[in-house]
Nucleic acid binder design. Sequence first.
DNA 1: AAAATCCTTACACGCACTGTAAGTGGTCTT
DNA 2: AAGACCACTTACAGTGCGTGTAAGGATTTT
Lengths: 223, 223
Amino acid sequence: MKHIAIVEDEEMVAAELSAMLQKEGYQVTCIEDFSRVTEEVLAILPDLLLLDINLPEKSGFVICREIKNRSSVPVLILTSRDQLKDEIAALELGADEFITKPYRKERLLLRIANVLKRYEGRNNMLEGPGFLLDRGTYTLFIDGTSVLLPKNQGRILETLLLDFGTVVPKEKLCEAVWGTSEFIDENALQVNLTRLKKTMTSLPMKIAITSERGVGYRLEEKP
Amino acid sequence: MKHIAIVEDEEMVAAELSAMLQKEGYQVTCIEDFSRVTEEVLAILPDLLLLDINLPEKSGFVICREIKNRSSVPVLILTSRDQLKDEIAALELGADEFITKPYRKERLLLRIANVLKRYEGRNNMLEGPGFLLDRGTYTLFIDGTSVLLPKNQGRILETLLLDFGTVVPKEKLCEAVWGTSEFIDENALQVNLTRLKKTMTSLPMKIAITSERGVGYRLEEKP
DNA sequence: AAAATCCTTACACGCACTGTAAGTGGTCTT
DNA sequence: AAGACCACTTACAGTGCGTGTAAGGATTTT
């Protein structure tokens, strides 16, 4: 069953939405602590977020960006203002849909189903500049094709990608690959890093791995 | 560069759209033979199709369904009628977006970018009941997780899925797995089929393989 | 120049996938 | 009912890819 989170400050509307979605067979959670929306959503990790723009504590736009920066939960923006400016802002922030109140029940349900369908299979995918990485099998989707990474290379890329742009210490990488290994053989890590770099150069990737002497490695956009 | 196909009978509108999209950096193809829209789209296989509803020869709805049945090209419906009924019909036919004329330039461009982004990585994916199959690596996405199929099992499932519901002769399966093999060892195929069945029973799949004595195999929904 | 760190390359081990082969069970024909 | 045919299962051995080890070269730091 798909899980939908609702962030809406008008209680009447929230209740109505909740009832409607539950009748459709969704599991629904209403978030009511508007000061901790982002944290709660990231904790719940729903299949979809229904997000109102006009909130008491913080703008829905800000929340949308925060969530999109730290996860890939699809977001459907709800708003009473029918302004193109809002829609542009929302979609540029990474929102997946935009619906104006008053909404028609059928339209809303269709849009929800549409977004959920689009996200099918994208559940445990990591998004990088110009590519996607499936965390289950370490399949790399890039430029219309797909490549299967060896497990170790996949785990390394995954770990670097989760901390994109910042230096990741070698111990963390070792832990990610071998699981809190006691005897961290830094040479083994080194070899696997070389291998990953090699497979990456054979692909049209926009990122590269750089090393920070004595500390660890970093993933960043190619110059 | 992303390739967009336009199907629009009002020449003025088509030219305007084409110019606008090209200025944005898309490759654009206008389809003008309205009696062969489906065939041309399937031949071109664009990254996105802009489809008008009111066409001289055939309804855009019909075209949308035909295309969706035979490919996974994303479709963005353009219409001058702003009727909820149309929108519901369109989305139920598998259309990915729905925009009413007169459109605002920014809104249209955003929606296009949005759909293209959603389809990232879904280029060579096959869609089955409740799952997706990547044709490059034979990664199976089901129920929020992903599993990597062995190459042979993947090829068999791929071939069966392309002819879902109909019987696939054993020769065709052999060809798909070993490539027009002269000495088709039907036993080898048999063993690989058994293996595929086994991995499928270990997954929450809604389909099953049945055998047609003396002919071949068929993929169908579980009873 | 020496030391430390990073990188490359080659080699051998192991595991998963594969085809072969032999044997079982079911189904159709006569 | 019996035999022929086809579908299925299982076990085994070969192969290839991914892996860690090890040794040596390259680059930066002291």
